[in-house]
Amino acid sequence: MIVCHCARIKSSDIQAAVAWMRAADPTALITPGKVYRALGKRPDCGGCVALFVDVLRADQNTGVPPVLRGLRKPADRRRTR
């Protein structure tokens, strides 16, 4: 499926870039900007960004790596004003 007409990016291109990035660094956080750079492209009109993100979310390799899950501390609800 064509995701970005301006840069001629297909969903298979995104999936291949994600797989390559995950193989190169299993702990990397994968963002749309990093995928565009990995493909040597950049968004032009921005109309594809929502679909681009949907393709990334559907890819199981895009998720937060297990070693990085749960690192955020719970919010302190007793903040003083």
Rank of each mutant, 00 (worst) to 15 (best):
L39P: 03
L68V: 02
D25S: 09
L51H: 09
L56F: 04
G33Q: 06
K73Q: 11
R42N: 04
A58S: 13
V55G: 11
Q15R: 14
P43F: 00
A17P: 05
D76I: 12
W20R: 15
W20D: 15
A38F: 00
P26T: 10
D54T: 11
P26N: 12
P43L: 12
I30H: 06
D54V: 01
C45D: 15
L39A: 08
A19E: 12
R42H: 09
K41H: 14
Q15E: 13
V18N: 03
D59P: 01
A16W: 08
V67D: 03
L68Y: 00
A16H: 15
R37H: 08
T27N: 13
R72E: 14
N61S: 11
P74N: 11
I30M: 10
D25F: 00
R57G: 12
V55P: 08
P26E: 15
T62R: 08
D54M: 11
R57N: 13
F52K: 05
A17T: 12
C45F: 11
P74W: 00
R37D: 14
P66S: 14
V55H: 02
V18R: 01
D54F: 02
A16Y: 05
V53T: 11
G40E: 10
P26V: 11
T62W: 00
P32C: 06
R72M: 09
A28Q: 10
V35I: 15
W20E: 15
M21S: 03
G47R: 01
L56V: 03
Q60G: 06
L56Q: 07
R69G: 13
G70Y: 01
R57F: 04
L29A: 09
A38D: 02
N61W: 11
P66K: 15
A38Q: 10
G40W: 08
V64R: 10
G46L: 14
V55Y: 07
P74S: 13
A50W: 04
V67Y: 00
N61M: 12
L39K: 01
G63E: 07
L56A: 07
V67L: 06
R72Y: 05
Q15L: 03
P66T: 08
K41G: 05
P74V: 10
A24R: 15
R42I: 02
G70P: 01
V49P: 02
A19Y: 09
L39H: 01
V49R: 09
P74A: 12
L68I: 02
T27W: 01
